[in-house]
Amino acid sequence: MEVFAQTIVSGLLLGAVLGLIAVGLTLIFGVVDIVNFAHGEFLMVGMYIAFFAWRLWGVDPLFSIPLAALGVGILGVISYLTFVRHAMRGTLLSQIFVTFGLLIFLRGLAQALFSSNFRGVQGSILGDVGLSVGGVSVPGPQLAAAVGSLIATSAIGWFVWRTRMGKALMATSQDREAAAMLGINPHRMFALAWFIGGIATGVAAALIVSYQPVHPNSGIAYGLPAFMIVALGGFGSIGGALAAAFLVGLIENIAGFYLPTEYKELWIFVLFLIVVIARPQGLLGRR
């Protein structure tokens, strides 16, 4: 029973972080109609920012959240303005490969600048903190990451559903042309979506780096599940992405415990295939 509770808790902790990453991804897709295949690499960039803030200036990752968020947000805007903007007008192939190119580019850049070594933050504030409730242990960094992710996700939800600019963003994702007819500049909304998607990922990155080392390929571990989550939840659906993220977090942990652990990631892909084939619009998708 305790073990089961432990897998549930671990699943929820993971789900919260995956949720923030996936919300950024689904927001970009919803508005811009492009899957950011470099999303995991955005996370990697954010992790490096937070890592070097600690390494060079001794700033704990917890305090470099704004820096990582802003850095990855700007990366998103630059990606949009330089290449994505042009690829949007092209074929599906262009739309897919522009972010694949970005993925390769960012990985190569990280490898060239920082080598392939694993780099981890040592002695973070939360490093030794942890809770233990009735035999279920909750490590401090993971708990902080989950709580921080939920706060950030709520903030994004507040922005898109409650503010004027956020509503304009949602309007653009629902009907680009009708939004333009009201004076909403689609290009600004596209750039905004990349900015917010980047911010979400940057926040997640700074939270994760307190307990996980970074290296040029560390994005894939979160990027791949994020694609599955976004498709599972229904492309562009923020609520769907959040729900699917928790589902994936739980399944990975529960399956990892009850079924052979080496296959724990397998079930996510299997679940994904079953769901999208039975219901191509995703769990909560609208299209």
């Binding site: 509503k167 949602m170 309007a171 629902q174 009907d175 009708a178 007819m181 609208r286």
Partner: peptide, 8 residues
């Protein structure tokens, strides 16, 4: 076709 934003 009116083109409202259906989910707002």
């Amino acid at each position: 076709g009116r083109r409202l934003f259906p989910y707002l």
